[in-house]
Amino acid sequence: MTTTKGTDRRPGPGPLRQALRLGRTEFTLFVRYKTALMYLIMPLILLMPVANMESVPVLGEYTTTDLALVGTIGAIALFLGLGHPSNVFTARREALVLKRLRVSGVPQTAIFGGVFLVVLLFTLLIAALIVGGSMALGGSMPVDPVMLVFSVVLGCSAMTLLGLLVTPFVSNAESAQMLSMVPMMALLFLSGSFIPLEAMPDTLRQVALLLPVAPTVEMAQAAYVGYDVFGGFEGAERVGFLGLWAGALPNIGVMLVWIVGLALLVRRYFVWDPRRP
C-alpha cells in the first residue's frame, strides 16, 4: 500500500466526469428500484385526457391534440424532477449515503449533477417516445428539435433543484413524497400541459408563465410546430429558426432566473447530515 502526498497527487476526475459517473449509478439504481417503471407508466395517465379530447386544427395542420401531446413532456419533467430527487436524496441522507460520498471527496455539484442526469435522461426518453408515437400515428417531426431538447433541459434543471429543496423539510422518504405533491399539483395545473394555457383567463396565464413549468411547455409546443405561440395560439405565425428563438427569449429568461435562484437556495439550505442542529 502506498499513500500519495498532497503535492504530487494526480488531479481528480473533475465534477463533470464525476457527475456522469454518478449518473450511471443513479441510472442503475433507478431501474433497480423499479421507479423507472412507474415513471414510464405515468405519461399514459397524463395522455388519457388528451386522447379523449376533441381534436380541432389550430395552427395550420396542427391540432389541439398535437399540442397537448407535446405539452405533456413538460409535465414529465415536473413529475420526475420533483418526485425522484426529493425521494431518493431524503432516503440517502438518512442512510448517511450522501455523507459518505462527501467524506470520500465528491463535491456537491457532482452529486446533484448525477441525479439531474438521470432525470434528464428519462424525461428525454419519454419525450422521444411521445414524439415517436405521434409520428407513428401520422404526425410530423418537431420543427426545431434543438429547442425541444433545450426546453426539457431547462425544465429538468429547475425541477431537480426544486426536488432537492424539498429534502431539508422532511426526515423520511415517505414525507418527501407527500410534501413534493404540493408544488407538483400546483405546478401541474398551471403548467399548460393539463389545462391548456389557452383555456386560462389572461391573468392566470401570465402568472403561469412566470412559474417554472409553463415556459418550458410553451417552448416545447413552439419547437414542435414552428409557430411563434409565445403570445398565444391565436394569430400565431409560422416563423423561421431565429424568429422562434427570439420569441422564446422571455421564457428562457424566466427559467434561468428560476434555475439560478433555486440553485442558490439549494446551496444554502441543502442538508447533508441527518443529525442537524
Binding site: 448517511l96 449515503v97 467524506v103 471527496g105
Partner: peptide, 13 residues
C-alpha cells in the same frame, strides 16, 4: 476533500 476520508459511525453504503 481529496486528501481525507472517513469511516462514519453509521455506515452509509
Amino acid at each position: 476533500r481529496e486528501r481525507t476520508n472517513a469511516v462514519l459511525q453509521g455506515s452509509g453504503l
